[in-house]
Amino acid sequence: MRLPVPLAGVVPPVCTPLTASGDVDARSLTSLVEYLLGAGADALFVLGTSGEAAFLDDGQRATVLRVAVEAVGGRVPVLAGVIDMTTARVLDHARTARALGADALVATAPFYTGTDPAETAGHFRRVRAGVDLPLIAYDIPSAVHTKLDAATLLALAEDGTLAGLKDSSGDLGALRRLLVALRGRGLDRAFAVLTGSELTVDAALLAGAHGVVPGLGNVDPAGYVRLYAHARAGRWAEAAAEQDRLAALFALTEARDPAESGAGTSPVGGFKAALRLLGVIDSRATAAPRTPLPDAALGSVRALLVQAGLL
């Protein structure tokens, strides 16, 4: 389906349910898609960080996208992560995504070997020219070690290379300045800015962001839909109250002893454990070499779900 211009609303970055043996669990992924759409999600982003795309082989990536597109059935746009180290590999993923029915692509800057701003811009331009689908930049310097600077983003917005930005930089000040610059150039009506920082969604929306891509939205999509609705209606006190409730629920990403896992394992492990307790997916398995949330942490996750009104 055609991507809205600009894309707005709540766009959960879908977790990838796996079986205990590490295969993609198509039944659970379909169940998760229905859970998210039933809560009112405006689009879905598969094969992102929460989807553990970096840990999946190419066949698993294709399976995830095929199952998700079929489950969505054209009800909302499906954004496909085509994240990889080089332009050539990103283009390969992008061609597969187009063939499988994705409505838009999401790509980071190249990584492993750093690129300067001109090279990063060239990367996005080659991807957009190579596959005729809307392209959204994913700014996640904690993972790719490149911060997408405002000058590059503005140039790529102006020439139509990029349809939007998913900002997971955690730099709310830089995001605010980018939004001001986009409005000053009249680009905010076509270029979508989506925050990936699920704890400051109300602030980002107040600053002018178009929507949110919240990892925690896998667990409580309805909460983010309410938050977005309050913000769009100017009910900022209600939006803040919903944000506070979600901030408390976010503690499930810290249920695991930090000494036992890396920074990336704990959030996804928490999301999957919560989804299993909610009966949405069948297993809390994570992609190797990550390990799932241990049994000893499940009580904490359950308590947080009860406190949030989800159990």
Results as ranks from 00 to 15, higher is better:
Leu162Gly: 01
Leu162Pro: 00
Gly164Val: 01
Gly164Pro: 02
Gly164Thr: 02
Gly164Arg: 00
Gly164Cys: 06
Lys166Pro: 00
Lys166Asp: 01
Lys166Glu: 04
Asp167Thr: 09
Asp167Val: 07
Ser168Trp: 00
Ser168Ile: 00
Ser169Phe: 07
Gly170Asp: 08
Asp171Pro: 05
Asp171Tyr: 03
Asp171Gly: 05
Gly173Trp: 12
Ala174Leu: 09
Ala174Arg: 12
Ala174Met: 09
Leu175Val: 01
Leu175Arg: 09
Leu175Gln: 12
Leu175Met: 14
Leu175Glu: 10
Arg176His: 15
Arg177Ala: 15
Leu178Thr: 05
Leu178Gln: 06
Leu178Gly: 04
Leu179Arg: 05
Leu179Asp: 05
Val180Cys: 01
Ala181Phe: 03
Ala181Trp: 00
Ala181Arg: 08
Leu182Gly: 05
Leu182Tyr: 07
Arg183Asn: 11
Arg183Gln: 14
Arg183Met: 10
Arg183Cys: 07
Gly184Ser: 13
Gly184Glu: 14
Arg185Pro: 05
Arg185Phe: 09
Arg185Trp: 08
Arg185Leu: 14
Arg185Gly: 14
Arg185Met: 10
Arg185Thr: 08
Gly186Phe: 09
Gly186Gln: 10
Leu187Ser: 13
Leu187Cys: 15
Asp188Phe: 07
Asp188Thr: 11
Asp188Leu: 12
Arg189Leu: 13
Arg189Ser: 15
Arg189Val: 14
Arg189Phe: 08
Ala190His: 11
Phe191Ala: 04
Phe191Glu: 00
Phe191Lys: 04
Ala192Tyr: 03
Ala192Arg: 03
Val193Phe: 03
Val193Glu: 01
Val193Ile: 11
Leu194Ile: 12
Leu194Asp: 02
Leu194Ala: 03
Leu194Val: 08
Thr195Asp: 04
Thr195Glu: 00
Thr195Ser: 13
Thr195Tyr: 02
Thr195Met: 04
Thr195Gln: 02
Gly196Leu: 06
Ser197Leu: 14
Ser197Arg: 05
Leu199Ala: 15
